[in-house]
Write a protein that binds this DNA or RNA. Structure first.
Length: 888
DNA sequence: CTCGGTGCCTTTTGTTCCGAC
DNA sequence: TGGTCGGAACAAAAGGCACCG
């Protein structure tokens, strides 16, 4: 048995997420006590009895504290208990319930008689459109509402009917009725962000209860460890919100959309008819308003609970929408149908020849996000006290554009919407920027106008950050990220610029990382800038680190890891403690372990204040004695020459974020946004001349059709007499090539242009496992994204069977299959093409690409290293442990 | 003596709450 | 009065370790 059955239970749950489509008869509920799985009928080691919905009385005689803790367990961890019925009360036995993971392990109640809960009609239960409990007695006293329903969680089954019919379909968001007494004022609604579909759990808060979901929580550890330890039986994901009190937060929010037409109307690409949208919505018990009726590619506007929705408590709850809400919700900022725009997960560069989206003022590196239970913590600010500023350069039109803002990830993987954070619209006297809210594929997006009268500049004083509870998000089907310690985000700005030919150019830029955790912001050291990022192998030079939370006790550790993550070198740098300041650290770079290298070698370093208080790893490069600094770009040393192919500066490989170097720009994946990266990092003015002289290749995005791989270039990279720069064209027709691209390439081949790279959104690996596929643009919709490459990341849940925690198994990335065709093999995770310095004796097949149609083989290198650091650390520890045991 | 299981304790982290401004 | 904001309380998660069979 496992040492810690409780953890095993958690592990079971996580590992078995992909099995959740098993029919209910095989569903199991993990016992927190033993880690064993129980048939649902025997789900509870606790007593279950049917009583009115959760109440504060304690019929079992538990103290309030005990009862609360019991609920903490049961609410979130016992799908069979709470989620099944609002009328089931869990009555943990006092003698067998105790707090803590350990005390439950030998719960003799595992064998105790349990009420039987039959769950017929479970066919078709899915996480996406789950049948929801519609209690036959859905009266107000036992109110069982979608507010307690987790859209990605288990189906809720009516205990009375056992049916999960259409009428029982749980809306993702549903206005709720009142009736159940609110037991704590602390649960008062503050924001509306809880209603964000799969990404926003609409958690119901139970007074005094913790939100954690021990059973189903993915932990930082078990995300990566020993995946084959167990083959857990999946417990039906419970709703993390199983309390049965009305949660007033949802009262404050309403996502209203019952059918596509409404959604389209609200999105502004259908005729908006006022009559479609009532200004008052009366919610009855059994009514539901699925926000995402079937398709996930749509946008749903959200009513701001703070401003737009008033609720009335009483037997009949209803929402009164202000008369101007349609105006607020349907701005004409972006009239482009969402289906023809690139999904938020897709990489979009920050600039083209003509345009550039640029962050003039970056946000502060720390911003404490607020929970739904809290009041707003205001807008993200700039270090100077103002707010971030974003400007679109190169736009000559007079029509205002919509600047979209959402919260993206900040790790080393490809940029994508952050699962645990959402942008939060700030309004008030101090806010000068008008903003509108959208929901795009479960991600809240703010849209603010970019107007020529403001020189296409926007002050972002209306964007706050909302933290969603980890337990809620982690229960989403397909969600593989964990929330714990995943507290860094970036503001992502995106704009779509209409072109005369009806197409659109999309640009996107992401801010520097923002630490959103209260505690981390005060404790974790953060390196914001390093005054040098390479030196010779001899070291000895002084490097000045600028950042936060440095102390005289701070240490700087240089490390090197192999491709498979094993740490092969570690060296503590000498820190000049006398000069040390909270924001400055003076470090003497240690000499590299091997002074005889003949190629630059990338290593990492981090600042560590204490045992677990270490900064994000930073990049550093040791250059061989005979070779000039990497800054001089020994391009020929790099086997991977995609930048040349794409007409990019090799310098563009480097992440321009402080201290980061030698990795793919996570803003846009592979090499997109490189020009701005280059500009930012090296201070180059304007577009790179080299960049400009190259005509772009064209990348077609076809909606829905899978090609042979995520990438398929039907045109030869070397066919063009000039180097290419890729342009991503969204089109539903494989035969369609971008007119623009055609113009830019040899005067317009019909059909598939030799320089066209096609890839399928369905194969594109950026989507979360549970996310809907990207929208398929209408046939006549084309969309151009200037994309200087394409990230080859595949998420761990993506199509590659390779486990994410097996970095050593990552296949080589880009393989030339035939002349004029470029294929990119699907990969495990985050396989941006690497530029890590090659060792003298590189392994693997490498060929320098040619612009003349030669074979092109690109070897992936140790990219995404930083992301893998933690994984590798774990692996290394395990290996070390194994080795140690082996030695002994 | 080693190893795994168990339970306890401590630390870390996430979430909620309070109060000042 | 409501929005911000800082601090901290509280509890769960995670880590560590000693004890025991």
């Amino acid at each position: 048995m496992f040492r810690d059955s409780w953890r095993l239970a958690q592990y079971h749950t996580m590992r078995s997420m992909d099995q959740d489509e098993q029919n209910l008869s095989s569903q199991r509920v993990l016992s927190p006590a033993s880690g064993l799985a129980y048939p649902l009928e025997e789900a509870s080691p606790y007593g279950i009895k049917c009583v009115p919905a959760y109440s504060e009385h304690h019929p079992d005689g538990l103290s309030g504290y005990e009862h609360q803790e019991a609920r903490n367990y049961l609410d979130s961890s016992r799908p069979g208990g709470i989620s099944v019925s609002p009328r089931i009360e869990i009555t943990p036995s006092r003698e067998h319930y105790s707090h803590g993971r350990d005390s439950l392990q030998s719960n003799p109640l595992n064998a105790s008689p349990r009420p039987t809960l039959t769950v017929p009609g479970h066919d078709g239960l899915t996480y996406r459109e789950p049948p929801c409990l519609s209690p036959a007695s859905s009266n107000s006293s036992t109110s069982w509402h979608s507010e307690n329903y987790s859209p990605w969680a288990s189906p809720c089954v009516s205990p009375s009917s056992g049916q999960a019919g259409a009428g029982d379909l749980c809306p993702r968001f549903q206005s709720i009725q009142t009736g159940s007494p609110r037991t704590s004022p602390s649960t008062s609604p503050r924001t509306e962000e809880g209603c964000l579909g799969p990404r926003s759990p609409s958690p119901s808060l139970r007074p005094g209860s913790r939100s954690t979901s021990p059973q189903c929580k993915r932990t930082y550890d078990n995300m990566y460890r020993s995946p084959n330890l167990v083959t857990g039986i999946r417990s039906r994901s419970p709703s993390p919100h199983s309390g049965h009190e009305e949660h007033p937060r949802q009262n404050a929010a309403l996502n209203y959309g019952s059918h596509n037409s409404l959604v389209e109307a609200m999105n502004g690409y259908g005729a908006v008819q006022p009559g479609l949208v009532p200004n008052k919505i009366v919610k009855t018990t059994n009514q539901s308003y699925p926000l995402y009726p079937e398709n996930h590619g749509e946008v749903n506007y959200v009513l701001s609970g703070e401003q737009d929705v008033k609720n009335k408590t009483g037997a009949d709850s209803f929402f009164v929408l202000p008369p101007n809400w349609t105006k607020q919700l349907m701005p004409n900022l972006c009239s482009i149908p969402v289906s023809s725009l690139p999904p938020l997960e897709w990489p979009v560069p920050s600039r083209t020849d003509q345009y550039e989206l640029h962050i003039d003022v970056q946000p502060k590196p720390h911003h404490r996000a607020h929970y739904e239970t809290e009041g707003s913590r205001g807008a993200v600010k700039a270090p100077t006290g103002g707010h971030p500023v974003v400007q679109l350069h190169g736009y000559r039109g007079k029509d205002p554009l919509g600047l979209q803002i959402f919260i993206g990830t900040a790790d080393e993987r490809i940029l994508k919407p952050h699962a645990f954070y959402q942008v939060h619209r700030i309004t008030g006297k101090t806010v000068t920027t008008t903003s509108y809210e959208k929901i795009i594929n479960s991600t809240k997006v703010l849209e603010i106008p970019l107007e020529s009268k403001n020189n296409m500049k926007a002050i972002i004083d209306c964007a706050g950050i909302l933290k969603l509870r980890n337990a809620d998000i982690e229960l989403r089907k397909g969600e593989t990220d964990i929330g714990r310690k995943n507290t860094r985000v970036r503001l992502v700005f995106r704009v779509h610029i209409p072109q005369p030919n009806g197409q659109h150019v999309s640009l996107q830029v992401a801010s520097h990382p923002i630490e959103c955790s209260q505690r981390s912001a005060h404790e974790l050291p953060m390196v914001e800038k390093q005054d040098m990022d390479s030196c010779s192998v001899l070291g000895g030079q002084q490097m000045i680190l600028t950042g936060q939370n440095f102390s005289s006790d701070s240490k700087v550790i240089f490390t090197e890891k192999t491709h498979d993550g094993q740490q092969i070198w570690e060296m503590e740098a000498t820190v000049d403690k006398d000069k040390c300041q909270p924001s400055l650290l003076f470090v003497e770079i240690p000499s590299y372990r091997d002074p005889s290298i003949c190629h630059p070698v990338k290593v990492n370093f981090y600042v560590i204040n204490g045992k677990r208080k270490r900064s994000q790893p930073q990049h550093f490069t040791y250059t061989p004695l005979a070779v000039p600094s990497i800054k001089t770009e020994p391009v020929d040393d790099y086997p991977f020459a995609m930048p040349q192919i794409l007409g990019l500066s090799p310098q563009s490989y480097y992440h321009h974020s402080p201290g980061s170097r030698g990795i793919i720009h996570p803003d846009n994946g592979l090499v997109s946004s490189l020009a701005s990266c280059q500009q930012a990092r090296y201070g180059l003015p304007g577009p790179d001349p080299r960049f400009q002289q190259h005509s772009p290749a064209i990348v077609h995005s076809r909606g829905g059709k899978s090609l042979s791989g995520p990438y398929q270039q039907t045109g030869g990279l070397g066919m063009s007499p000039e180097p290419h720069r890729s342009v991503l064209v969204h089109t539903s027709s494989p035969a369609q090539s971008s007119p623009l691209g055609a113009q830019q390439h040899h005067g317009g081949d019909q059909g598939q242009h030799p320089s066209i790279i096609q890839f399928s959104p369905t194969n594109q690996p950026l989507l979360r496992g549970g996310d809907p596929p990207p929208p398929q643009p209408p046939d006549n919709q084309q969309h151009i994204i200037y994309c200087d490459g394409y990230p080859q990341e595949t998420g761990p849940q993506a199509h590659s069977p390779i486990p994410a925690h097996s970095p050593q198994q990552y296949p080589t990335t880009v393989i030339q299959q035939q002349p004029y065709a470029l294929k990119v093999a699907p990969r495990g995770r985050s396989p941006p093409v690497g530029v890590e310095a090659q060792r003298c004796a590189p392994t693997g097949e490498e060929q320098r690409p040619s612009l003349a149609g030669e074979r092109v083989t690109v070897k992936e290198e140790n990219l995404d290293q930083m992301y893998l650091d933690d994984v590798n650390e774990i692996i290394r520890k395990d290996l070390t442990g194994v080795q140690a045991r082996g030695h002994t």
